[in-house]
Design a protein around this nucleic acid. Structure first.
Lengths: 214, 214
DNA sequence: TGTACATCAGTGAACGCGCGTTCACTGATGTAC
DNA sequence: TGTACATCAGTGAACGCGCGTTCACTGATGTAC
């Protein structure tokens, strides 16, 4: 991994915190490029920032703490994207759909970040990541609104939120983890999963559909 | 990692293949205990079998080949379990449900094997794992039967199979990867996902359900 | 304005470790005559 | 039955590597007087 900026200029007195931000950015970028946390070393991060490895320890007490900080940052970005997609919806169901598509899109655009956030057990301690909790709370909120508006079946909003999450996570993570699988067109696959799950969640239409079992 | 059998008795002439089986078994066991492939070393496997590291190379050309062989074995077991569960079903839908439950159960009982098979990109080359392909073919077959019997909506069986797979994989992998999440009761969660996805897949009942949108 | 000193961001070298893999070898097992 | 020899399962020591982390240090920046 080459130096990207050459040896770095020393920070002025009191500006030590600037390096912290640069370390986070470099760690995030390297994670995106080269896979999981084990594949990204303290040394590579230091090198990318243009600093020696021990300098990292002036800002983070351990590699684990650094990785957790990166996750927090990425979860904030993840949440921001979904919220933004949701506000563009024309009604509740449309918002739900847009959030779901934004979810999958985030995963496919940032597969290694997605892998880190959702496919490894980096956060072994509950509540270690505030941003993750916030993102889930927003999802439950969206589902709750759909139920309260009578669009989704009655039922435990948390359970329904988890079920929708499962389906979206399922297709996203399979597309990421099984690149060798003979996938049909990605958009069709994602659309199919979303339709299936929403068909299950939506209340039956007022207009009765008559379909006998053959 | 302690020797489990002490130094091993040398195989007789022509019985060299016995060690191969023992290596596979030990590798499978260690993977189940301690996580992903990177966490299990050639040295640990050799030690568990009671042999020195170079001996491994008498039977596998590299660590990757060894891991792939373990995956193949585990996929065969996975498929066997689902097929077995399916045959116990009283009708097509019941078989589908039983297969789905067996799927989740396999994952939760063998989280590290599941992680290896479905959550890492060990199999970068398409068609590298015959057993995996077979298991998927069986799944598509089950879905196809449900469609042909008029129980599921018409549609591309492969797409529907992938969608159902996504939901089952979603909940299984989230339960494995996010142990710190405040999950409700596992059976309720799994049941909820399965109900949702099957509600989406099943044809509407002949008896029309009248439900206005509030 | 000048100088002694405290601060602190960052360095350089080293620590001990475990890894996958290679290579020349050993020594028990079986075979040919 | 005895002996020289081929076979081959497995060994012991070493290779070069990259890792996270520690520790005594340097030297530019700012401050007190």
């Amino acid at each position: 991994v080459p130096h990207h900026r050459g040896p770095r200029a020393r920070a002025r007195r009191g500006e030590g915190g600037r390096l912290r931000k640069d370390i986070l950015a470099a760690a995030g970028r390297l994670l995106a490029e080269t896979g999981d946390q084990d594949a990204v070393s303290i040394r590579a991060i230091a090198d990318a920032v243009g600093v020696t490895p021990p300098s990292i320890y002036l800002h983070f007490t351990s590699k684990d703490e650094l990785i957790l900080a990166v996750c927090n940052e990425r979860f904030a970005e993840f949440d921001r994207r979904l919220e933004e997609a949701g506000t563009r919806g024309t009604d509740l169901i449309d918002s739900m759909r847009r959030r779901a598509h934004a979810y999958v899109q985030f995963g496919l655009e940032n597969p290694e970040h997605y892998r880190l956030l959702f496919m490894t057990r980096y956060n072994l301690t509950p509540g270690a990541d505030d941003q993750a909790d916030l993102a889930f709370a927003h999802h439950v909120q969206t589902v709750t609104e759909c139920i309260e508006a009578g669009l989704f079946h009655e039922g435990d909003p948390t359970l329904l939120a988890i079920s929708i999450w499962s389906a979206m996570h399922g297709i996203t993570s399979l597309l990421i983890a099984q690149p060798g699988f003979p996938w049909p067109d990605r958009d069709r696959v994602v659309g199919s999963v979303l339709d299936l799950i929403l068909d299950g969640a939506l209340r039956p239409r007022a207009t009765a559909q008559e379909n006998g079992i053959r």
